[in-house]
Design a protein around this nucleic acid. Structure first.
Lengths: 330, 330
DNA sequence: CTGAAAGCGCTAACAG
DNA sequence: CTGTTAGCGCTTTCAG
């Protein structure tokens, strides 16, 4: 590994001058600067990021800790974060917490120990502890799910999205819509359930019916199965994310139920495949890219002005995309 | 930030002893060890990973640089890498190169500068330069696409998979299968094309027809459009990845063509949504999880024995999953 | 078994 | 404008 002192010797200057030249600081003799650049080039010098970080007590790395890489919602968020981060000179380190509190904690520690400049986090649950990051002066922006702690957040109005999806189902004439939502400790899961519940309540004359399940394909499949086997089975399903929707589709196919006549379906998240499934899927679309972009924006602003101003929360809106799966065609 | 000297003072020992105790080295007085642990706990001490890395000239971080986070194939690979990495005490940093040579180069540099213990890379093109990592003593395992350079690789026999997919199309009675493959500089794209070409050639009496396009939804859509507008349009499509398949589905829907009668379709990669699209999609499935797991395995072995033995290449096989989209139902 | 001291590679303060 | 010096927080000789 060629280091700064090697370059210094090669260029016939001191290490300090090399550092200054390479970091394009003002007040460097242009001749020297050129000699240094040439020497660095010749030797194939790359600054040691670790040493630099240690000295500067900072890095140009942002950590993005998401709950599930396989979820298209989060990959869209990732794009948003990446684009803004790149514009501001940061590289982003993606960490997949996999809906697992332990993994999440591990990555939070990695982020702290490696002194990333900031963290974008989609927390597993509201009690995720970010106090260590705060103590270390590392700004955090939370996305998707709120935290008990006071932090910058970019959220989505899940409640309204869920409510209008359910209302839409009712308007279409479905008699008994049920809700398949995420685990109880996920705030988004609760909000989406509450939106559903509110719509049902306002509509009157229909009883609520719902299941909590993991935000995964298997969770959706199993919840669907249980719901359909219940004494008064639903004739429509509002599903809380696209991973679960896959499981719903699976179970429905297994039972040879046809969407649009036997059962209506609408789901959160406009996955890229949603328009192409058997009965094109109606969805509540979240502005995933924007969530990521806004979060990264907030974060870079925090990093600049490290004065601890009060936390900001952005709440973005969903919009309904009606395709076929929620319509009654019979 | 509480540092090791703070703990040392609190425990009434030297920094060296704290280091030894916390890293569970032998030959530490158990009493001291306990005092140190208590002090560290009390102070909320976390070792500074940067300082440690600088001193030890190594980290317990693995970089996984993939060409597209949104591609389910790579998210499955990611799971494989993560599981094995975790078993061996590594955290994995996921970097999304986004099919972009410049981003890829940036992440390769980040990996080098932050001295990750190893890199799993799905290179954009065969001429990706990993010589700097090699020079820095950082082992690399390449997946999905081979490199010109000599490195450990975990690949898939794309040629055979493509050939059998095309043969399957022909066996089903489709008269004019075309191939939509990735960009020319991607080896997998070429291999899949070659497999197709070989099958066509062996079959005789049918002319080849193909398009190169980006490995994305838009690429698939556009290639489909061009192909269908050509003088002798195809009646079946072999598509080189699942992202492109989405675009194919899109264009086909736009033209109101019905899969299974107007046109047959088969694609590489068994995306989670493949069974549920309008006509359940026949696919050439890659062992994505295994690719990741094997790559991580190779990598950890390299990291252990840093003796530069000759590069190993594993080539895994695909398997055909026939659903409806490739069958002639008319 | 423990402590003092050196040093990983870099940047920032301070003289010159 | 440049060089010398100090030091980021840790681990690891080397003495004791």
């Amino acid at each position: 590994m060629v280091k700064i002192s090697d370059v210094a010797r090669e260029a016939g200057v001191s290490a300090a001058t090399v550092s200054r030249a390479l970091n394009r600081q003002p007040n460097v003799n242009p001749d020297y600067a050129e000699r240094v650049r040439a020497a660095a080039e010749r030797l194939g010098y790359r600054p040691n990021g670790i040493a630099r970080s240690l000295r500067k007590q900072s890095t140009n790395l942002l950590a993005l800790i998401i709950s599930d890489v396989a979820n298209p919602f989060f990959t869209a968020v990732t794009r948003g974060v990446e684009d803004i981060a790149q514009q501001n000179g940061y590289s982003i380190l993606l960490c997949n917490a996999d809906e697992d509190a332990a993994k999440e904690a591990t990555y939070l520690e990695v982020a702290e120990q490696h002194q990333v400049a900031g963290v974008v986090l989609s927390p597993h649950a509201a009690d995720t502890d970010i106090s260590r990051l705060a103590a270390a002066g590392i700004p955090v922006v939370v996305i998707d799910r709120p935290l008990d702690a006071a932090v910058d957040s970019v959220l989505v109005n899940s409640f309204d999205g869920a409510k209008s999806a359910t209302e839409h189902l009712l308007d279409e004439g479905w008699k008994r819509p049920a809700c398949i939502t995420g685990p109880e400790d996920a705030e988004t899961a609760r909000q989406r359930l509450n939106g559903y519940l509110k719509a049902i309540e306002e509509y009157g004359s229909v009883g609520p019916l719902y299941r909590h399940a993991p935000f995964r394909q298997g969770g959706g499949r199993q919840a669907t199965s249980q719901l359909l086997d219940s004494p008064e089975p639903p004739d429509a399903l509002f599903v809380a994310n696209s991973q679960m929707a896959l499981g719903v589709l699976d179970e429905l196919a297994r039972r040879r139920m046809v969407i649009g006549t036997d059962i209506g379906v609408i789901t959160f998240d406009d996955a890229p495949w949603a328009p192409f499934v058997n009965s094109p899927l109606s969805v509540v679309a979240q502005p995933a890219y924007d969530i990521g972009a806004q979060a990264a924006q907030l974060l870079t602003e925090r990093i600049g002005h490290s004065a601890p101003s009060s936390p900001r929360t952005l709440t973005l809106s969903t919009h309904l995309i009606v395709r076929d799966s929620s319509r009654r065609s019979a």
